[in-house]
């Protein structure tokens, strides 16, 4: 395993007696894009501000390339940051905003010009160089903020919910642009968001935070398919979280001794009527009967709410035109695969 490029050791922070960060440890490799994902107030932005030097932690170490930067002012940390509100300077043009950091660091004019041109090309804003921030769209402002942070060639780039103020379409486009730029520059990046879809799409690794802790971290695939706790299961998607009794009612007694279980909505199959083929009980599958409560079409996915053996389940099926449809209150059969039932640990265990 490579040595960590950025390492947080035991970061603690309290605000007015309440613990916001509780001994947070995190290691990030060079060139990695790590997402801090969690609900509002979980401490993810505070952790980012501690790394940036904008909030002073009560304790802990922040090592960047083996150097402890915890006591340095923000301007000496070699860390760049893109704020949620972009924080572009309204009195400066796009070019002026990108050039600002270079000017502050005493870079000579020719070099400043060369680097600004490079970055304007990178974010595709060459034609907007003379525009003021208030003359740009949200997406363009975001790209300026990104270019401005990259101009000073930081060792780590911090992105604090940079896409939250944009509409869905622009957000998707910018998401992939950010990822492309990050890969192209091999920039070590920490991305903060509360949007699990954004985290899954962008990240090399996701750290899920709750109540000042990192409760689970791993690759997007691992986190989605193997949530450890009920909080992660609920946060990562529309997992069905079942108590032991509920799980027994659906899967029988042979399911272990966990207090709660998670079942992915797409792991349950909905069968129309009796005699439907395509699901084999020989692989250990179980078939239970149920009643559909509601159906909603979410674009490429149809989401069913089904009551089966007194347990309400959310079931997602691909909206491929072949999926059978049913009216609300229709009787259906559910094909359940016990191997998809995940045992969850207690919170904080």
């Amino acid at each position: 395993m490579n040595a960590s490029y950025l390492e947080l050791q035991g970061i603690r922070k309290t605000f007015g007696g309440s613990i916001v960060l509780d001994n947070v440890d995190l290691s990030i490799q060079e060139g990695e894009l790590v997402t801090l994902l969690g609900p509002s107030g979980c401490g993810k932005s505070t952790l980012l501000r501690c790394i940036a030097g904008l909030t002073e932690p009560d304790g802990g170490r922040i090592l960047l390339g083996r150097k402890d930067i915890a006591s340095l002012p923000p301007r000496n940390r070699e860390v760049g940051m893109v704020f949620q509100s972009y924080a572009l300077f309204p009195n400066l043009t796009v070019y002026g905003n990108i050039e600002y950091g270079l000017k502050m660091r005493g870079v000579d004019k020719a070099e400043r010009q060369r680097r600004c041109e490079e970055l304007l090309a990178l974010v595709d804003l060459e034609e907007k160089r003379g525009a003021y921030p208030q003359q740009l769209s949200g997406g363009q402002q975001q790209r300026v903020a990104l270019a401005r942070s990259l101009a000073v060639q930081p060792k780590v780039l911090l992105l604090d919910e940079p896409l939250s103020a944009l509409d869905a379409k622009i957000r998707k486009n910018l998401r992939s642009e950010i990822r492309d730029i990050q890969k192209k520059l091999n920039m070590t990046t920490i991305f903060v968001t509360h949007d699990q879809e954004e985290a899954l799409t962008l990240s090399d690794r996701i750290c899920i935070m709750n109540n000042g802790h990192i409760v689970q971290d791993g690759t997007p695939e691992t986190l989605y398919s193997r949530p450890r706790t009920e909080f992660v299961a609920r946060f990562m998607g529309s997992y069905n979280v079942l108590t032991h009794a509920e799980a027994v009612r659906l899967f029988g007694d042979d399911i272990g001794r966990a207090e709660s279980y998670a079942l992915r909505p797409e792991s349950v199959r909905l069968l129309a009527g009796f005699g439907e083929h395509g699901f084999s009980e020989s692989v250990g599958g179980r078939i239970v009967e149920g009643t559909i409560d509601s159906v909603s079409v979410l674009g490429n996915v149809i989401r069913y709410s089904v009551m089966a053996n007194g347990v309400r389940l959310t079931i997602d099926m691909l909206n491929d035109g072949r999926t059978f449809r049913t009216e609300t209150s229709g009787a259906v059969r559910l094909a359940l695969n016990p191997s998809q039932l995940l045992q969850l640990e207690k919170e904080g265990a």
């Binding site: 940036a52 923000p74 301007r75 704020f83 924080a87 300077f89 950091g101």
Partner: peptide, 12 residues
């Protein structure tokens, strides 16, 4: 926020 941003970019 403007101040934070300027400080992050190297300004005192």
């Amino acid at each position: 926020e403007l101040l934070n941003s300027a400080e992050m970019l190297g300004a005192s």
